[in-house]
């Protein structure tokens, strides 16, 4: 099996002949400007570096206090999972599940899957479920809302800063770093390039 010589535009169905591009360039659909691929220097290394650090910070953000709320003698400190736990206490299971999925499980899975596929590519390993994992990444990415959760935290803090003093815990900083790493991973993630590499491993070795 070989690499494609022409591709179908995902958005407008135009057939586009492929030409080799060099680093820093991108391939776009001439009709609807859909970007097929961007070639970054050291894309594999960057993806792995940001993926590993992202997962690392995600795990760390469970370990410490997340936010503290101090007002007139009484105070309350929450950890990351408390935002889901308290929704659950009020029997808002669906919203709690949604929060859990979109801000922790799906972003974590995306990073994990990217790393898994890249390990297979980098060391030319035929790992089990390689294709399904790569497919999963594309299906999960639209449902990642970690960065929106971060904006939500900031908005809610602005809402209550007049009522009380807010202190950020270490977990909060870890979560911010996690979101930054995740965003960087998604910038360098390129479906076209990824499948090109996978085919190199699967068919050409």
């Amino acid at each position: 099996m070989s690499q494609p010589s022409q591709v179908t535009c995902h958005e407008c169905d135009l057939l586009v002949a492929l030409k080799p591009i060099s680093e820093g360039q991108k391939l776009t659909c001439p009709r609807c400007r859909f970007v097929f691929t961007r070639k970054f220097p050291l894309a594999q290394e960057k993806l792995m570096a940001f993926g590993v650090s992202g997962l690392f910070f995600l795990v760390l953000s469970f370990a410490f206090p997340f936010l503290s709320f101090i007002t007139r003698g009484s105070d309350r400190t929450i950890v990351l999972l408390d935002s889901m736990r308290s929704l659950q206490e009020f029997e808002f299971f669906s919203v709690a599940m949604l929060l859990m999925l979109t801000t922790i499980i799906i972003p974590g899975l995306v990073l994990f899957a990217v790393l898994y596929v890249l390990i297979a590519i980098k060391w030319k390993l035929r790992l089990p479920m390689l294709n399904s994992t790569a497919k999963l990444i594309s299906y999960l990415i639209p449902w990642n809302m970690a960065e929106i959760f971060l904006i939500g935290i900031l908005v809610s803090l602005i809402k209550i800063t007049s009522l009380a003093q807010i202190e950020f815990g270490y977990s909060f900083y870890c979560y911010v770093l996690f979101v930054l790493c995740l965003t960087a991973t998604l910038v360098y993630f390129d479906r076209f390039q990824l499948w090109y590499w996978i085919r190199q491993v699967e068919f050409n070795d």
Binding site: L67, F69, T71, S74, R76, I78, D82, S83, M84, R85, S86, L87, F90, F92, V95, A96, L98, L99, T102, T103, M145, I148, F149, I151, G152, I153, V155, S156, L157, K159, I160, L163
Partner: peptide, 26 residues
Amino acid sequence: WSMVDVFVVAILVALIQMGNLMSVHP
């Protein structure tokens, strides 16, 4: 991005639970 409001509620509900002094329910 519309999900922001739901997340704001989730954070406020978790953070502000001080009984009758001040508390937020979803």
